Amino acid sequence: AAPGEKGCGAHTDFGGLTLLLQDENPGLQVWDRHSKSWIHAAPVPGTYVVNLGDMIARWTNDQYRSTLHRVVNMSGRERYSVPFFFSGNPDHLVECLPTCLAPGEAPRYPAVTVEEHHREMYRRTYG
């Protein structure tokens, strides 16, 4: 990518967890809702970035939510990263965990399977 060219536009991950191995070239940016700006997530050698996906919000009634992020390669060099996306069994039912509900509170999301969740996310994104 040319310097300043997006490697991946702003998005959240659909599934449960993402593990990301980055090379030494920066590019990953995370949206800070409080300052309304992008924060550079500089690579740290020997580490992985661990990101929660949208499915975690369903399980936790939004106590934990996925992080809006993007990739902008401004290094002038090729940048490589290796993501591992974990979503679980497509038939597993994803519903709010009882410990994530306050007394009298209702789940914000209906129960769906992992597959149904992914189909809806793809429909919203690409449909």
Rank of each mutant, 00 (worst) to 15 (best):
A41G: 07
T125L: 15
Y48C: 12
E95N: 06
W38I: 03
A102R: 14
Y122A: 03
E115F: 00
P3K: 06
S35P: 00
Q63A: 03
M55Q: 13
L28H: 04
D32H: 06
T67K: 03
V114E: 02
H92E: 12
R77D: 06
L28R: 07
R123N: 08
G46C: 07
N61K: 11
L101V: 12
K6C: 08
S87W: 06
E24T: 13
R77Q: 14
M74S: 15
P107K: 04
R33G: 10
W38G: 01
P26S: 06
D32Y: 02
L68C: 04
E24D: 15
H118A: 00
H69M: 10
G46M: 03
R33S: 13
R119Q: 14
D13G: 01
S66K: 11
R65N: 06
F84S: 10
P45F: 00
D13T: 03
N73G: 02
R124F: 05
A111H: 12
S66M: 01
G46Y: 03
N25Q: 15
V82W: 14
A1T: 12
A1G: 14
R124W: 09
H34Y: 09
T12P: 02
G7E: 01
E120T: 13
S35I: 02
A10D: 08
T125Y: 08
N25M: 14
D91C: 15
N89S: 13
K36M: 14
L20I: 14
A106E: 15
P26G: 11
D13A: 01
R33T: 07
T47N: 06
R119E: 09
V50W: 07
L52I: 10
N73I: 02
G53V: 13
Y48V: 14
F84R: 02
E115G: 00
N61C: 04
P90E: 00
L97N: 09
D91G: 12
M74A: 15
L17D: 02
H92Y: 07
E105N: 02
W38P: 04
Y122H: 12
A102T: 09
N73K: 01
G9I: 03
L28D: 01
N73W: 00
L21E: 00
R33W: 10
D32N: 15
G88N: 10
Y126F: 15
D32L: 06
W38Q: 04
P83G: 00
E115W: 04
G88D: 08
V72M: 03
D32A: 04
D54M: 05
I56M: 14
F85I: 15
L17N: 02
R123D: 11
N89R: 08
G9S: 12
L68G: 01
V49I: 11
S81W: 06
S66L: 06
T12R: 05
P107Y: 00
V82M: 14
Y48T: 04
R79M: 05
W38L: 02
Y109T: 09
H117C: 15
A57C: 10
P26A: 05
W59A: 11
P43L: 08
W59Q: 12
R77K: 14
N73A: 03
W59F: 08
Q29Y: 07
L28A: 01
N89W: 04
D62K: 08
N25A: 05
D62G: 00
G76H: 07
P3A: 07
G7A: 00
R33F: 08
S37V: 10
